[in-house]
Design a protein around this nucleic acid. Structure first.
Length: 812
RNA sequence: GGGGCAGUGGCGGAAUGGCAGACGCAAAGGACUUAAAAUCCUUCGGUAUUUAUACCGUGUGGGUUCGACUCCCACCUGCCCUACCA
């Protein structure tokens, strides 16, 4: 009887005792760094963790059997808000809450039977870890990659913290954690200069990452080429705008400033002051409750001020409107209503002039009064002073050359990507290692004083202030520079900072001279295969690339990229096809599944039930198929055959053929992470072996080979049962130390093939022929077939197509 | 509005441009059993039907090709991301 509850703990203990999964530097073997995204210790391993990790583990095990020295580490992304919320709600210290959860999750992870080398575990909230998170911050600060500035930031009034733009979701701009609509707030914040790397982050040429992630990151960075053009107001102030269409400059008939733009107040005339003030107040209120959606009707007010279009000297009115965002470009635009839909709508509503300056080649001459919408197409420049008549293909470049020559602007590139805001007004994070001195300014904590440890004796008061600010002594210190009284920075770092380098801490989690042991780095880096959810495409996955490149420029890391190959898994939905959540009551608990079926069955089912990169709804009866399969494998390999006959030569030949064909496809599917077809191939092979057993093959040499190969192929998928059966069939411990088998091409070869015969592409006959059949013989056989003769009606075929080993297609 | 992914039986899915539906789930019928569970066997895309076969069939419409689930174009639907991005 197959009893997973007995064999699984037994082998897990044995493997741990033997250090079977220890990964150590071995210069004689090629290395393979298999990494799966570390979990947040929320308290329970959910099915999504299993779905992410157990197929990744199977892949890592396969690589190991192939002869690679494989490192598959694990740790915990332990800083962050939930721990702090638990502290406030349940009066339990975040450290205690986190370490309890880690203990639970470590036990759960061990029940998976993964080949994790636990000696390499790292946890971001350990002082020995965040020591180096702080060290990295200081390197960035010293090299002008970290800076502080006052900025209007998104702030969650419920969580009382700033959020990165990536953490603000939805039309109503709510906090990703608690759903509260965010507000704008001005605070002095720390930033990393990720925008320095915008162009380099667009280059994916050296890495094997999914197209989708590349697209998401490319769109997120959103590089656009155009020109920066300076308009002057009548009182001499300069308003710089960015445009992607410098060729439409002559059609700029008004300007629009964001309501928050600093020049709005200065430009506003006394007559217009009341309505501008009211509009600004309204925009601010809107910003607090709900930032408007794109299809809302445009609104705005005239400031009363004017600017001069630098290319044609026209005096144009300056408006303020909330469809211009302070956070993008310069917060000001030149409006070209004839060729931009938003500007067009605005101009029509407020009766502003519309001037056509582009004539697209395939349109009738554009007449302003007939237009009901803007024409954004490229075309010949018209009404454009000296550039009138410039063809569309060169209009962009000529316009830039013109404004550069006139000294009113220059070609420019704009990005949507913002610098990375890392300040958080929270306790449970790595303190930013900066001391604010009234005389010396922001002084980094000397590296010898790191880590700046979080004080453990903090009060949890619902004041909205960070407990670090309220602590009676922690923040008061002396300036390392001048020795005078000074104060510590009380902000902590975004947890994405911790997760930007955890793959480096795994290299040597106990090393205390440097973030990582350089010897380990030289051997293991870069990560060979990285697996995790695609939801991190524009957050963690872009930050960690930036982090690596910044560190490379500081001489800390090497190479352009930290992770060679990335693969994303999909999501396991509830049985109701909805996202799993406690409130819906559709959560599948892996612990219960392990208790009911065993870890091997859960692993196999998670690999089998869906295409890994897509995910699918859970199906609680589907998993029955997986345990049935393992029971059958157990029976097939262990129960002596009851039939009393000798197998024929052809029975054994057939068995070997299927074994080696399966090996070829399983090997291929492991390389490409097609886990579902790995399991189905193994199911098919077991079915074939049961037939062979019925024919008396049990115990023969061919059978012993099938048994050995089957268990080695099964080992990465279901490590426990494979080990148990390996032992029970008389092999030496351990199946996990066996080499991956080689395909015997000769055995896999088919002797006979089914030759498909088509007439005009339609299937008309099947012929069993020798696999070695020649083209001439195949064609002849097809043409001679009785059932084909009927379709030929005695006429000679126009054409006969032969696909070796596959088919003959007769065209009549 | 922009971008991405997907669409194949009742369900999850399989198929280097070459036999569509592998493998599994569910369902139906049967065997075993006092019974149930477990296990085993059979059937299982649709229509017609002489049960052998024919025709239809991979969201829709075109195209390329001897041949298209697969490649190209347009559209429809669903999901995800993003959004007044100048």
């Amino acid at each position: 009887m197959y009893k997973p509850a007995e064999i699984e703990p037994k082998w897990q203990e044995r493997w741990e005792r033997d250090g079977l999964y220890h990964a150590d530097i071995d210069p004689h073997r090629p290395k393979f760094y298999a990494l799966t995204m570390w979990p947040y210790p929320s308290g329970d391993l959910h099915i999504g963790h299993w779905y992410a990790m157990s197929p990744s583990d199977a892949r890592a095990r396969f690589k190991r059997m192939q002869g690679y020295n494989v490192m598959f580490p694990m740790g915990f992304d332990a800083f962050g808000l939930p721990a702090e919320n638990a502290a406030i709600q349940h009066r339990i210290h975040p450290h205690q809450w986190t370490s309890q959860n880690i203990d639970v999750m470590r036990r759960q992870l061990k029940s998976m039977g993964a080949m994790i080398d636990w000696r390499r575990e790292a946890t971001s909230s350990d002082p020995s870890y965040y020591h180096w998170t702080q060290w990295f911050f200081i390197q960035f600060y010293k090299n002008d990659l970290a800076y502080q500035k006052e900025a209007q930031v998104d702030f969650c009034p419920h969580c009382n913290t700033t959020l990165a733009r990536e953490q603000v979701h939805g039309d109503d701009r709510h906090c990703e954690r608690c759903g509260t609509p965010v507000i704008k707030k001005n605070l002095v914040q720390w930033f990393f200069r990720i925008t320095n790397y915008a162009d380099e982050l667009l280059d994916f040429s050296t890495i094997d990452w999914p197209e989708q992630v590349q697209t998401l990151q490319t769109n997120w960075i959103n590089r656009s080429e155009g020109a920066a053009v300076v308009f002057k107001t009548e009182n001499g102030d300069e308003i710089e705008v960015f445009t992607t269409r410098p060729d439409t400059l002559w059609g700029a008939t008004f300007m629009v400033l964001a309501p928050e733009h600093p020049l709005v107040k200065k430009l506003t005339t006394p007559e217009q002051a009341p309505s501008v003030a009211e509009y600004r107040a309204q925009a601010e209120r809107m910003g607090e409750i709900q930032r408007e959606t794109a299809d809302r009707e445009k609104t705005g007010v005239f400031t009363g001020g004017y600017a001069v279009n630098p290319v044609n000297g026209e005096r144009i009115p300056v408006w303020t409107a909330d469809y211009v965002m302070m956070g993008y470009g310069t917060g000001a635009i030149m409006a070209v209503p004839a060729h931009d839909q938003r500007d067009f709508e605005f101009a029509r509503k407020y009766n502003l002039p519309v001037v056509v300056v582009i004539q697209p080649p395939d349109e009738h001459p554009l007449i302003v009064d007939e237009r009901t919408m803007a024409v954004p197409a490229v075309g010949e420049m018209v009404n454009s002073g000296p550039l009138t008549g410039t063809p569309g293909e060169v209009a962009f470049q000529r316009a830039i050359a013109y404004i550069e020559e006139k000294g009113v602007g220059h070609g420019a590139v704009s990005y949507r990507l913002r610098d990375w805001l890392i300040s958080r007004q929270r306790y449970w994070g790595a303190p930013i290692p900066i001391i604010h001195c009234p005389h010396c300014g922001a002084v980094p904590v000397p590296e010898t004083d790191l880590p700046v440890e979080l004080p453990m004796d903090v009060e949890w008061l619902p004041t909205g202030e960070s407990p670090l600010k309220l602590h009676p002594t922690w923040r008061f210190t002396i300036c390392p520079h001048c020795g005078e009284k000074a104060e510590r920075e009380t902000d902590t770092m975004d947890t994405f900072m911790c997760s930007s380098w955890y793959h480096l801490r795994y290299l040597s989690p106990d090393y205390n001279q440097y973030p990582f042991d350089p010897r380990e780095y030289d051997y293991w880096m870069p990560v060979d295969t990285y697996t995790g959810g695609i939801e991190h495409a524009t957050m963690h996955l872009i930050y960690t690339r930036f982090f690596h490149k910044a560190c490379r420029d500081l001489g800390i890391t090497r190479g352009a990229e930290p992770m060679q190959q990335l693969r994303n898994q999909g999501m396991v939905l509830g049985e109701d096809h909805e996202k799993m959540s406690k409130s819906r009551g559709n959560v599948v608990a892996p612990d219960d599944l392990v208790a009911a079926y065993g870890a091997d069955t859960v692993r196999a089912y998670l690999m089998f039930f869906a295409r890994w990169e897509l995910g699918a709804p859970w199906n609680s009866s589907g998993i029955e198929g997986s345990i049935r399969w393992l029971r059958k494998v157990w029976f097939t390999l262990l129960e002596p055959s009851e039939v009393d006959k000798r197998p024929g030569e052809e029975d054994l030949r057939k068995l070997r053929r299927k074994v080696h064909q399966t090996l070829a496809s399983v090997t291929h599917d492991f390389e490409t992470l097609n886990f579902n077809t790995i399991v189905s191939s193994l199911m098919e092979l077991n079915n074939e072996m049961m037939l062979a057993k019925g024919a008396g093959a049990f115990g023969t040499e061919a059978w012993r080979e099938a048994e050995s190969l089957y268990l080695r192929m099964l080992a990465p998928v279901c490590p426990h049962i494979a080990e148990e059966l390996w032992e029970r069939t008389g092999h030496d411990y351990s199946v996990h130390l066996q080499p991956w088998p080689e395909v015997d091409e000769e055995a896999a070869r088919e002797d006979e093939i089914t030759l498909v015969v088509q007439v005009n592409g339609k299937l008309r006959d099947r012929l069993i022929v020798p696999a070695s059949i020649s083209e001439a013989d195949a064609k002849a056989a097809a043409l001679e077939s009785d059932s084909i003769q009927v379709y030929l009606e005695g006429k000679p075929p126009k054409k006969v197509i032969y696909v070796p080993g596959k088919l003959v297609n007769i065209v009549v």
